[in-house]
């Protein structure tokens, strides 16, 4: 319990520091904010007035507190490029990202763990070889290139799936698999090596010697011990999926949080960039926290501390 409380406090501190860092990073580029909204012929006075209007001329720490106050009251203003309400953007894009992220997250473990177990149990056979080749390949192929190959084959050549768009199940298939692939590859490796380590461990040998059936040894004891590293992997995967979503959503034209952030950065739409980078950072920090807590709960050695 103490450990959990400690980690939670630490997480809150990280969240605060990260929000300050992100805030400063985005405000550094505040000089360009006028380029997003004003026409090129705007005079220096116009630009100055615009900066004043946005509150960009105040000291940064003051801007930070003003911003956080407005964040809590739910009033974040509008996008500089298309005037949409930023909070409304959050609900729309957040929902889309949630669909994609949860599907990819589920795929990572629903596909990765069984494949890893299969490879470990069929160690040194062609099955193991095929699974591990897939795993090495999955980590070497950059996901955006895989995405293009998939679009080219499944959409252009065979016409089986739509190449982009949101959010029907058919449109979800390609982005979800591309987003999940690296995680699947990593999970396969982790599961396999954790299984192998436990299959050869002393306590498993003792269980076997005690006459337990192989199925029971594997299902009850080996799997449970192997889940500890996988659980901490799960939390870290949330962060990785957020990172890759920035790329995958952009490729598949999936209107999620990542795509919004990338477009806002490219167009120097700083209020949008500001808010959505804070959102993504918060998701990542929460994922790391969940990984920590899950790890503490799953690991009997840490449970009591």
């Amino acid at each position: 319990m103490k450990r959990i409380a400690g980690r939670t406090l630490y997480t809150l501190l990280v969240l605060f520091l990260a929000s300050v860092a992100v805030f400063y990073a985005i405000r550094l580029s505040g000089g360009d904010a006028t380029a997003a909204r004003l026409v090129a012929s705007a005079t220096a006075e116009d630009r100055e007035a615009f900066r004043e209007l946005l509150g960009l001329n105040e000291p940064i720490h003051q801007q930070y507190f003003t911003y956080m106050g407005r964040l809590l009251s739910g009033d974040l203003g509008v996008s500089l490029t298309n005037s949409s309400d930023i909070f409304k953007m959050l609900t729309f894009h957040g929902r889309n990202s949630l669909i994609l992220g949860v599907t990819a997250f589920t795929l990572v473990f629903a596909v990765g763990i069984p494949l890893g177990i299969l490879a470990a149990r069929k160690r040194n056979t062609w099955v193991d070889g095929a699974v591990m080749t897939f795993s090495i390949g999955g980590m070497a192929v950059p996901n955006f290139w895989l995405a293009l190959l998939a679009i080219w084959l499944f959409a252009s050549v065979w016409g089986l799936l739509p190449s982009a768009g949101c959010c029907s199940p058919r449109q979800l298939i390609m982005p979800a698999f591309v987003l999940a692939l690296e995680g699947i590859a990593l999970t396969v490796r982790m599961t396999r090596s954790a299984m192998l380590e436990n299959l050869e461990s002393d306590h498993v040998r003792t269980l076997r010697a005690g006459g337990l059936s192989e199925a029971r040894v594997v299902n009850k004891h080996v799997l449970r011990a192997s889940f500890i590293p996988i659980i901490s992997l799960m939390g870290l995967r949330i962060g990785q999926i957020v990172g890759y979503a920035l790329v995958v959503e952009t490729i598949f034209g999936w209107p999620g949080l990542g795509q919004v952030l990338v477009n806002a950065v490219l167009r120097r739409d700083y209020p949008v960039a500001q808010f959505f980078s804070l959102v993504l950072v918060a998701i990542v920090v929460a994922g790391n926290w969940a990984a920590d807590i899950g790890y503490s709960l799953a690991n009997p050695r840490l449970r009591k501390t």
Partner: peptide
């Protein structure tokens, strides 16, 4: 640990937001 906790691509996008592409 603070830096390591964040996904690389996100950090890079934030840097690009601060320093330009």
């Amino acid at each position: 640990d603070f830096v390591w906790g964040f996904p690389l691509i996100l950090v890079a996008v934030l840097f690009a937001a601060g320093f330009g592409e």
